[in-house]
Amino acid sequence: MDDTQGSRVALVTGGSGGIGRATAERLARDGMAVAVHYAGNRRRADDIVAGITAAGARAVAVGGDVASEEEMVAAFDAVEAEFGGIDVVVNTAGIMLLGPLESFSLDDLDRMHRTNIRGTFVVSQQAVRRVRSGGAIINFSTSVSKLQFPGYTAYAASKGAVNAMTLILAREMRGRDVTVNAIAPGPTATDLFLDGKSQEQIDALAAVPPLERLGTPEDIAEAVAFLAGPGRWVNGQIIYVNGGAI
């Protein structure tokens, strides 16, 4: 454990998911106190918290709908009450629904945009108001915005909005000593990504990067840890973490 990070506190939205869990565990290994956010699966979040605390770090589970201002105010309040403040906010919470634009359900479009766009906006708004000097706000985008896979129109559009929010917010934070960046993963072996894909599709996607494999949640968490800790001179950037796929 890195004791130099011992006084820092991180909130990871979607912390009970694949990338979120790996991120929470990675930041905890760096010595940060971690709030593991969940939307619906409290037991999984509690299991992650138990594992982190068993390893000697501090952690707590906090729930809520990322698109609800009231619920996110309560979540941030809970983190501050437990740990005394917040230094890092990581927005991994998101949903991915796929299909061609021609036949894509507008209800699905609205549902995905509510989580991916409004949720990122709501969480970022609370982060701006609360993250301490020297902190970091880390959003989640996607490499698909450049890979341009058919069927990803709606999802990539939602993440395009995240890119815009991230780049502008970094400039709005001038003088606050808080960095704002986004991680844009490529194909990563999470339940969210693998759901509904055939083995043939998975193999084809794994062959896209020159490293010839899918990313892992731990690969993505390493990039988050850099931005959350030593990467203080990286600001206002979209970081493509995809093994060289683009």
Rank of each mutant, 00 (worst) to 15 (best):
P185Q: 08
R42N: 00
G134W: 02
A228C: 10
D203S: 14
Q148G: 08
S68P: 10
N235L: 11
L109Y: 15
E69G: 01
F121Y: 15
V12R: 04
V62H: 04
A24H: 05
A55Q: 03
L214T: 01
P230K: 02
P210R: 07
Q237M: 13
A50L: 05
G99T: 05
P210K: 09
A223H: 12
T4R: 15
G229P: 01
A204M: 13
T142G: 03
E172S: 10
G134V: 00
G31E: 07
R29P: 04
G236D: 01
G15S: 07
I202L: 09
I48K: 09
S124I: 11
S145Y: 11
D107H: 07
G175N: 00
Q199T: 04
Q148D: 12
S124Y: 08
A245Q: 09
V162R: 01
V144K: 06
S158H: 05
A170E: 04
L211R: 13
L147G: 09
S16K: 12
R118A: 12
D30A: 10
L106C: 10
F149T: 14
R58D: 15
T4C: 04
D30I: 02
F76P: 02
Q125I: 02
R129I: 05
R8I: 02
L192F: 03
G64N: 07
G20N: 01
A204T: 13
G31K: 01
I52S: 10
D46N: 12
N91I: 11
L227C: 06
S16H: 05
A39L: 14
A75N: 11
P210L: 09
R174L: 12
R130Q: 07
A223V: 13
G186C: 02
I48N: 06
A67C: 11
A161M: 13
L147Q: 15
D110E: 14
L169D: 02
R29E: 15
P150F: 03
T179L: 03
D65E: 12
I138N: 02
G244D: 04
Y38W: 09
D46I: 03
S145H: 12
R114G: 08
Y240Q: 11
V144C: 09
K197I: 00
L205W: 10
T190P: 04
G135M: 02
N139Q: 11
V79R: 08
P187G: 13
K146I: 14
I168L: 15
G231A: 08
D46A: 13
G18L: 03
M112E: 15
T216A: 02
S198V: 10
R129H: 12
V224E: 05
G20A: 05
R8P: 03
Y240R: 13
